[in-house]
């Protein structure tokens, strides 16, 4: 799952080391357009429902946080 998510992120926002970054939103590496693109991809790839309520910085600051969000929604 991690590899698939990393592939989505790298395609959506090239040139970012997603495995190292831990403040993607707080440091404005990801902006709103990127987040919406990533969410659309995640919804399709993992068949999960992500709503507006999930769009908070904590859920998108790192690849681990995104993974945790996906797993929470799958459960």
């Amino acid at each position: 799952m991690m590899e698939e998510l990393l592939a989505i992120l790298t395609e959506a926002v090239p040139g970012v080391d997603f495995e190292l970054e831990t403040a993607l939103v707080d440091d404005e590496i990801l902006e709103s357009l990127d987040i919406v693109t990533i969410v659309s991809e995640i919804k399709d790839a993992f068949d999960v429902e992500i709503t507006v309520d999930d769009l908070i910085p904590q859920n998108f600051n790192s690849v681990e946080a995104m993974l945790a969000l996906i797993e929470a929604r799958q459960n």
Partner: peptide, 23 residues
Amino acid sequence: MRDYLFYPLSLSKPFGRLGKFTR
């Protein structure tokens, strides 16, 4: 605008359907 319009609009069902269609 981002939090109360852009996000809800982008993640709404019609936009989801449009996304599937365009992809």
